[in-house]
């Protein structure tokens, strides 16, 4: 009967009490008691924690402001860098779009060889309509080569040096291009003017020119290849007692905003001036 001694009985009773308490706690019967005892403890802990955090914030805020300012400055500099990168990428995108457009023109006119060039300047005198491009004899550019964009005819090379060339635009007052009207099937001359406007001259009076008619190069005269888009007829003018009528043309190329051009390198312009009888 050694097992039922006093010590073992105390242990068994203790285990039974603990088991009973656990059973009651797990069954939820002791929740009111727990709430009664724990709630004041939690409230006190919350109060203490809030006061501690407030005190800590009060003591550590100055260093946080400095840190925040540093982070702000860092982020602002990053924003500035990103904005700069964005502008650069937008510029590159614009250049790429121009290149793609020029490439499209080359694909649609595969019979010609092209030299792509960037416009680097314009004529100083306002009386003349010329542009400077960054390709010259070293790149294969020669005098008289036609110059186009993805949209249409620009002009022809007027002067060339090793690394650059000067292009006379078709809007120059001394420029004359032989063109044809697509629907009217007539061949006329396109002339530039002092103001940069272009117009058709020498149109016979009996010909009917429709507004919006497409103007293409005719290839006559040997200066330009045929069938390059020039523009559309904007309006016609008939003067009393005049032998011919004229027509204003809306150029397809915006000459004030040309950034890149294509020089047609395999077109041989023909100098017909020796065939013109001297006056």
């Amino acid at each position: 009967m050694k097992f039922f001694n006093r010590k073992n009985i105390q242990t068994i009773v203790l285990l039974l009490v603990i088991s009973g308490l656990l059973f009651l706690a797990m069954s939820g019967y002791l929740t009111p008691i727990f709430n009664l005892t724990l709630n004041p403890l939690i409230s006190m802990q919350r109060w203490l924690s809030v006061r501690y955090l407030s005190a800590r914030d009060l003591l550590t805020t100055p260093s946080d402001v400095v840190q925040l300012r540093q982070q702000n400055a860092l982020l602002e500099s990053q924003v500035t860098q990103l904005q700069t990168q964005l502008i650069e990428l937008e510029e590159r995108l614009g250049e790429a779009q121009v290149c793609f457009a020029l490439l499209d023109f080359g694909r649609t006119n595969p019979q010609y060889d092209y030299i792509a060039a960037t416009v680097i300047g314009r004529e100083i005198s306002p009386f003349l309509q010329y542009i400077m491009i960054d390709k010259g004899t070293e790149d294969g550019v020669r005098y008289g080569m036609p110059v186009v964009t993805q949209q249409g005819l620009v002009g022809r090379v007027d002067a060339v040096i090793a690394g650059a060339a000067r292009v006379k635009l078709i809007s120059d007052s001394t420029s004359v291009v032989n063109v044809r009207l697509k629907s009217a099937e007539i061949e006329v001359q396109l002339q530039g003017s002092l103001t940069g406007d272009i117009f058709l001259d020498m149109i016979p009076l009996d010909e009917t020119v429709e507004l919006g008619d497409v103007v293409l190069t005719s290839g006559l005269g040997g200066n330009y290849p045929p069938n390059i888009f020039v523009g559309q007829v904007l309006s016609t003018q008939r003067r009393d007692n005049a032998i011919f009528q004229t027509a204003s043309v809306q150029p397809i190329v915006d000459f004030t905003a040309i950034n890149a051009v294509l020089v047609i390198s395999n077109f041989q312009s023909v100098d017909v001036s020796p065939l013109i009888p001297e006056k």
Binding site: G121, R122, I124, P126, L194, T195
Partner: peptide, 15 residues
Amino acid sequence: LQMTVFSRINLIAGS
């Protein structure tokens, strides 16, 4: 500057 920028500033046909 004249060749690159100011030749593009036009008032009618003047610059």
